[in-house]
């Protein structure tokens, strides 16, 4: 592409959480190796829309710029993904940018992903190691187990799987695939396993894994390639076993 080329954007904007959204078009000069974030930075430097009118710069969220933090997720040309790895050269123009509307929009492309962090708290996605005395080293983890558990640990709570899920919306309490897979991660850890039942019980609560409708959009959309639907089915089995155990009774 020549130096004179421009990149066209159609951006869904919203001035505050309560206000209606609207779209605004932008044309910015092309530079080699641009990504969506560097284009948004260009708009911030020179906040003029395609009509030549000065406007408020577009707001977005970002942090690591290398697809490991999940903060810059947005809907790029219809698909939720991280804007830092959305290279302009690979995108069809005009490039449509929208916030992930499954979450409450804070402003423009910034959304509030708090529900994801609340879900992690709900399913106890951590390993309790605190005690009143030194508990000593924990049990060892088998290497083959560590390898697949590592894949699950790549989750960055970016929200793409929740955005893609038809059952995560304001009509449902469903916690979504991300937190479910974290239960599998922490239950596979030799120390975390000691609190396995608590996590499974929490997954069986309101908005739990039973709300999954198996559309499997999550596993298709996950930018980290996490086997989310395998985690879902594996935990479905755990829930079945747990419900039989707790109804008919068994030693823990």
């Amino acid at each position: 592409m020549s130096e004179n080329n421009v990149v066209k954007f159609i951006i869904t904007r919203q001035d505050s959480p309560e206000e209606e959204s609207y779209t605004e078009e932008f044309e910015i000069p092309y530079r080699a190796n641009m990504n969506v974030i560097s284009a948004l930075m260009e708009i911030r430097r020179n906040p003029v829309n395609a009509a030549g009118k000065e406007t408020a710069p577009v707001n977005w969220d970002m942090n690591c710029l290398e697809e490991v933090c999940g903060a810059c997720s947005m809907v790029v040309n219809g698909k939720p993904r991280q804007s830092c790895t959305a290279l302009i050269d690979n995108l069809e123009q005009p490039i449509h940018l929208e916030p992930m509307k499954t979450f409450p929009v804070v402003r423009d492309l910034i959304v509030d992903r708090s529900r994801m962090f609340d879900s992690l708290k709900k399913v106890k996605a951590w390993i309790p190691i605190d005690g009143t005395y030194d508990l000593g080293p924990g049990p060892r983890m088998a290497e083959n187990k560590r390898q697949w558990a590592y894949e699950l640990s790549k989750c960055m709570t970016c929200g793409v799987c929740l955005e893609a899920c038809p059952n995560v919306n304001n009509n449902s309490e469903f916690i979504g695939p991300a937190a479910v897979s974290q239960v599998r991660l922490f239950n596979s850890h030799p120390t975390g396993e000691m609190n396995k039942e608590e996590r499974i019980e929490s997954l069986m609560g309101e908005g739990g894994l039973q709300d999954c409708g198996n559309s499997q959009n999550c596993v298709q959309s996950c930018p980290k390639g996490i086997p989310l639907t395998t985690s879902i089915a594996a935990l479905n089995r755990e829930m079945t076993v747990q419900s039989f155990k707790s109804f008919f009774g068994s030693d823990k």
Binding site: P166, N167, N169, N171, N214, S215, Q216, N217, Q220, S221
Partner: peptide, 21 residues
Amino acid sequence: YIVFQGKNNTRRYGYFRNWMF
């Protein structure tokens, strides 16, 4: 009740399983 909890999105995610859903 389950139907009303979902918001279909096959237009955006035209995967086989989503169509089955």
